[in-house]
Amino acid sequence: MNKISAKVKKRIAANVTGYLLILPLLIGLVIFTVYPLLVSLFNSFFYNYDGFSPYSEFEFGFGNYARAFTGYESKVFWKSVGITFSYAAVMVPLGLVLSFLLALFLNQKTKGVGVFRLIYYIPCLIPSIVSSMIYLYIFNPYYGLMNDIFAAVGLPKSQFFNSDDYVAVVTYMFMSLFGIGGGMLIWLAGLKSIPSTYYEAAKIEGGGYFYSLVRITVPLCSPYIFYQLITNVIATLQICSAAYMISSSGGVDDNLLFFGLYIYRNFMNNNFGYSSALAYLLFVVVAVLSGILFRFNKYVYYEGDN
């Protein structure tokens, strides 16, 4: 009898302690995540809901979703989707490959490698307000340094971020190349985790550098490829603050209206219902992409698997 009550007492004590410790987390989870998720979903079904008037004033249904695909908004919506996906289609693979090459190049036992690794990572530390100031200045169409360089090598002047076509997005892509040092660090961790005995074995069998690269390095790095692919795609779909600063919520003729920014702009204009619908569309895309990538996970090599 006594023994049981001691056990019960212990369990109650564990529950009290446990829930007290995670109380802040739990409150935050409910107020800042679960509740908003439900409210957003609810809002997205009220056509043109403005966030403050009573719900009864708005039509219930899929109006906001229809507005994105077919309504008068659809031109801007598709433009934003186009910009975001073309950026992702170019920059996610390019970023992965370039940061991988950088890591390969840095993964050698030469003096001073550590210093160069830090230098390559430094642009990732620059707050976006500072990098926006720098790049807006360098790419200024009238007095920017980049046009000076263009003139020196005989290229025509460019409007860069101010141009009303793809040039703005390409400039944005070039700008984000400075940030591949973060990916490089992850690759380096992957490369370091490969036992050197594998390479020695390949050497004995007469395999050259490229043989080891294709047969050992790339397959053994595949968990890192998978991980970076997911996180980079999701991050790209949500690009917002840097694009906001550079283009002040869309730029000339919406040339830099990334999807995240499009949602934010609608939110700022009190289109709460519509922007909630857009956010849920984004959520569906993110979920589907994560799902596809997780399916690929089957083909990924993990240490210790057979």
């Binding site: 369990r11 509740y35 908003p36 998720l37 957003s40 993110v286």
Partner: peptide, 28 residues
């Protein structure tokens, strides 16, 4: 601490990592 329901709460909390922050921004 071995409190009841820790696995469920942990799973839910981890599941929110992938959520786009923009989704919760408006109600917050």
């Amino acid at each position: 601490v071995k409190f009841d329901g820790r696995k469920i709460i942990f799973t839910v909390a981890m599941g929110t990592i992938m959520l786009p922050s923009i989704l919760t921004m408006i109600p917050v």
